[in-house]
């Protein structure tokens, strides 16, 4: 009796969440796979075309471009975010037990809680070549030759988008790493002091090795979040100039909701998933291999 009662209870506990989850998360994902074999614009008839969408990706220069741009985002963002977060975390950690500690920590963390839309628009106004703050400041301090159309030229647009994305991401990871540093047993650091280690040596040889686990987490998080970069390019550059800031995510969105190629967009989504999985596994492998 008790047993059956318990069984029902388990079902009731699981049911609502599971239904929602399977309906809105799992089913559309499977449906994406199915739709990727059809040519369908959302209106009219669906046409089975087999692997045509996947084949088309190899000749679709815009897709290839978006693919490479996504790779470029990863290549730049992962090291930048990692490095800056570590430096910030180490700097703040040194100030523990001072009144500055909480202040700096809060300020660094702050961008993380802002809406990505607001961040994108905020920086778009700063980068504006005629009414923006950046060119204004450069002119005011006599660096006129440095002023440019930051988001309007291929040479600077990508860097600007990377900068803003890092601006948004860094706070969270700094705090993550910081808390790991604070968890390092004091004795270890004291021992290093007694051995006469310089601050730099202490950072490299004592603290960093202790942070391996958390740095691995940071790397994977950054990777997955970089693959998902969307708001910044969409709102700051629209993916331009000439596609130089357009990641796969944005290209897929445009295929689905500007060109209404739902089938093709789904195929891109499937490729996107495979990429995410490969990237995650690779990162795990590399960081693991490092350890042994």
């Amino acid at each position: 009796m008790q047993h059956r009662n318990e069984k029902w209870a388990i079902i009731i506990f699981l049911l609502p969440a599971t239904v929602l989850y399977f309906l809105f998360v799992i089913y559309p994902s499977i449906e994406a796979l199915r739709m990727s074999f059809y040519n369908w614009r959302g209106l009219g008839t669906k046409e089975w075309i087999g692997f045509d969408h996947y084949k088309y990706m190899f000749v679709d220069s815009s897709f290839i471009n978006a693919f490479l741009v996504t790779g470029k985002y990863i290549l730049f963002l992962m090291p930048i975010v990692l490095l800056v977060s570590i430096i910030i975390a180490l700097s703040i950690a040194k100030l523990i037990r001072t009144r500055w500690f909480n202040l700096y920590r809060a300020i660094t963390f702050f961008p993380y809680i802002l809406p990505a839309v607001a961040i994108a628009m905020l920086w778009a106004t700063i980068f504006n070549p005629v009414s923006g703050m950046l060119n204004g400041i450069l002119e005011a301090v006599g660096l006129e030759e440095w002023t440019r159309e930051w988001l309007g030229r291929e040479s600077t647009a990508f860097g600007s988008v990377v900068f803003v994305t890092a601006w948004q991401m860094v706070g969270f990871y700094s705090v993550l790493i910081l808390s790991s540093i604070l968890n390092i047993p004091e004795e270890l650091l004291e021992a290093a002091d007694i051995d006469g280690a310089s601050r730099f040596q202490k950072n490299i040889y004592v603290i960093l090795p202790m942070l391996k686990d958390i740095l691995q987490v940071v790397l994977i998080f950054t990777l997955i979040n970089t693959l998902k970069v969307f708001e910044m390019p969409q709102l700051m550059t629209g993916g331009g100039p000439n596609g130089s800031t357009e990641p796969i995510s944005l290209y897929m969105y445009e295929q689905a909701f500007s060109n209404f190629n739902f089938g093709y967009a789904s195929a891109i989504g499937v490729v996107f998933l495979i990429l995410t999985l490969i990237a995650s596994v690779l990162t795990l492998r590399i960081t693991r291999g490092d350890r042994s």
């Binding site: 699981l14 599971t18 989850y21 399977f22 309906l23 809105f24 998360v25 799992i26 089913y27 559309p28 994902s29 449906e31 994406a32 739709m35 959302g42 997955i224 693959l227 998902k228 969307f230 995510s249 897929m252 969105y253 689905a256 909701f257 739902f262 967009a265 789904s266 989504g269 499937v270 996107f272 998933l273 995410t276 999985l277 995650s280």
Partner: peptide, 24 residues
């Protein structure tokens, strides 16, 4: 099974299912 399928949700990018989710 249930644990694994929820774990899967951590890896599935929202983007994957954009078009089918909208149609659903």
């Amino acid at each position: 099974t249930i644990q694994l399928s929820f774990l899967l949700g951590l890896m599935l990018p929202t983007f994957l299912a954009m078009a089918p989710l909208f149609l659903l």
